Simulated scan of single mutants.
Amino acid sequence: MSDALLTLEGVHTHIGAYHILHGVDFVVPRGQLTLLLGRNGAGKTTTLRTVMGLWRASAGRITFDGRDITRLDTQKIASLDVAYVPENMGIFADLTVKENMLLAARGARTAAHMDRQRLQWIFHLFPAVEKFWNHPAGKLSGGQKQMLAVARAIVEPRQLLIVDEPSKGLAPAIINNMIDAFQQLKASGVTILLVEQNINFAKRLGDTVAVMDNGAVAHTGTMRALAEDEALQRSLLGLAI
């Protein structure tokens, strides 16, 4: 297994009076795609938000590329080349696709200053981004908004891309396009952490997997091993894939 880019050790998170994460432990190997699976309410989204500093861990340690980021604020974590695509995508509906992309390109003041070679690579991954470049983002379909959200996250080079349920509500053809894009991103050297409910999506993409239950990690291993063990699937997820 590759060395760990991201490590969570005994991470607890409280939100108000609620104790959501109960000692979460797992690693995200460098250069791989790690899936965070589990039933609804298991703590997956809370884990992602805690990694990003949107919610502060009340105990435990989060390490990124050898650095303790447990107490860093979100802006500082993002500056370490970590990008996060939330479940609601965070698209600015009244801005154009171009303006959404420009907001994420920290080194560019205008679209003309954006890295043209990188943009062409993104357009190859997500043709809809180029097609609707000057259209209001709010007019895009759900699948096109998801493509824009991921494209915006990678408009600058990233070490780690964190995405919450990228296939949710998407048509099968769009899901296939998204799978291809994530495969190409991984091949380019980007480490990816995904929360996903679509098990076929997970099965086709995942290298390693952490399965959560009741705010803790109940299983870690390879996606291939989980996909081949129906008894383990039923035990952890309540279904067979």
Rank of each mutant, 00 (worst) to 15 (best):
residue 121 W to F: 13
residue 136 P to L: 10
residue 112 A to W: 05
residue 145 K to M: 08
residue 143 G to A: 12
residue 91 I to Q: 01
residue 113 H to W: 11
residue 128 A to E: 08
residue 133 W to L: 06
residue 98 K to F: 10
residue 86 P to K: 00
residue 135 H to Y: 14
residue 113 H to R: 08
residue 143 G to F: 06
residue 124 H to Q: 14
residue 83 A to M: 02
residue 134 N to L: 09
residue 106 R to I: 02
residue 85 V to I: 13
residue 84 Y to I: 00
residue 128 A to N: 10
residue 115 D to P: 04
residue 144 Q to D: 04
residue 123 F to K: 06
residue 137 A to Y: 10
residue 112 A to K: 13
residue 130 E to K: 15
residue 107 G to H: 15
residue 78 A to N: 05
residue 91 I to V: 08
residue 91 I to P: 00
residue 143 G to I: 10
residue 110 T to V: 08
residue 137 A to V: 04
residue 102 L to I: 05
residue 109 R to L: 07
residue 110 T to C: 11
residue 84 Y to A: 00
residue 107 G to W: 14
residue 148 L to S: 03
residue 86 P to Y: 01
residue 124 H to S: 15
residue 135 H to K: 14
residue 90 G to W: 05
residue 95 L to T: 02
residue 87 E to P: 00
residue 78 A to K: 04
residue 143 G to T: 11
residue 124 H to K: 14
residue 121 W to A: 03
residue 89 M to N: 06
residue 106 R to Y: 15
residue 96 T to L: 10
residue 124 H to T: 10
residue 130 E to R: 15
residue 134 N to C: 04
residue 117 Q to N: 11
residue 113 H to E: 14
residue 97 V to L: 10
residue 116 R to C: 03
residue 77 I to R: 09
residue 122 I to Q: 03
residue 87 E to W: 01
residue 84 Y to R: 00
residue 128 A to C: 12
residue 121 W to G: 02
residue 144 Q to L: 02
residue 104 A to D: 01
residue 100 N to D: 02
residue 95 L to F: 11
residue 138 G to V: 04
residue 89 M to L: 15
residue 113 H to G: 11
residue 120 Q to E: 15
residue 116 R to T: 04
residue 116 R to I: 01
residue 128 A to W: 00
residue 113 H to T: 06
residue 86 P to R: 00
residue 94 D to M: 04
residue 91 I to S: 01
residue 126 F to Y: 04
residue 121 W to V: 00
residue 144 Q to M: 07
residue 119 L to F: 01
residue 89 M to T: 05
residue 145 K to E: 02
residue 93 A to N: 14
residue 104 A to R: 08
residue 146 Q to W: 09
residue 98 K to S: 13
residue 116 R to S: 11
residue 104 A to K: 07
residue 137 A to I: 06
residue 120 Q to F: 13
residue 138 G to P: 05
residue 124 H to E: 14
residue 111 A to N: 05
residue 119 L to R: 02
residue 120 Q to L: 13
residue 128 A to F: 01
residue 134 N to M: 10
residue 107 G to D: 15
residue 76 K to F: 06
residue 93 A to C: 11
residue 133 W to C: 00
residue 115 D to V: 02
residue 106 R to P: 06
residue 95 L to Y: 09
residue 145 K to W: 05
residue 108 A to E: 08
residue 76 K to D: 14
residue 98 K to Q: 13
